[in-house]
């Protein structure tokens, strides 16, 4: 089962390596990890998607919390969370099928951010499921390359992990 873990950490060098090191060292599997600065420049927020049973995820949480640089940590429940991921996907196209690809992009509420005679680059920011749907729809046209940011997430309503 997939779990979303949100972590606030001190924003200085070496923190990310401590966190990623912990995952490999203790044999935890992560699907994605996204990190960025917060409103407070001394603090970064990391969102991790972990695959595992309850025991594993509880261990992940406890071991992470043990790190000196970790300030707050919270497992976010799916139903109480808004989560998004950004993907850029470059698809090959011809003059014949360009219109179809643009139609798919529109239906999926994504954006065309670059276009050339032989390719289209589409930007989509949505849930991971929807990103995968778009990917499947574009596959027949020939995906040239894909880049994804990993999921970021916030709790719904006025709740915060701070």
């Amino acid at each position: 089962m997939k779990h979303t873990i949100s972590i606030l950490v001190e924003n200085h060098a070496g923190v990310l390596s401590r966190i990623s090191g912990l995952f490999s060292r203790r044999g935890f599997n992560i699907d994605s990890l996204a990190v960025g600065i917060t409103d407070d420049p001394t603090m970064s927020r990391i969102t991790i998607i972990v695959n595992g049973d309850d025991y594993t995820v509880e261990q992940v949480e406890k071991q992470l919390y043990k790190l000196i640089d970790v300030y707050k940590i919270k497992r976010l429940k799916v139903e109480e969370t808004i989560s998004r991921e950004l993907m850029l996907v470059k698809v090959s196209c011809t003059s014949e099928n360009r219109g179809d690809i643009i139609d798919i992009a529109r239906v999926m509420q994504s954006k065309i951010c670059d276009i050339s005679s032989e390719s289209i680059t589409i930007e989509i920011s949505d849930t991971t499921d929807r990103l995968e749907i778009l990917q499947e729809l574009l596959r027949p046209y020939g995906i040239l390359e894909i880049v994804r940011t990993g999921t970021i997430a916030l709790q719904k309503g006025n709740k915060s992990i701070c």
Binding site: Y55, K62, Y65, K66
Partner: peptide, 8 residues
């Protein structure tokens, strides 16, 4: 004192 040891 270490919560990570409990339940490990």
């Amino acid at each position: 004192i270490d919560p990570a040891e409990i339940g490990k």
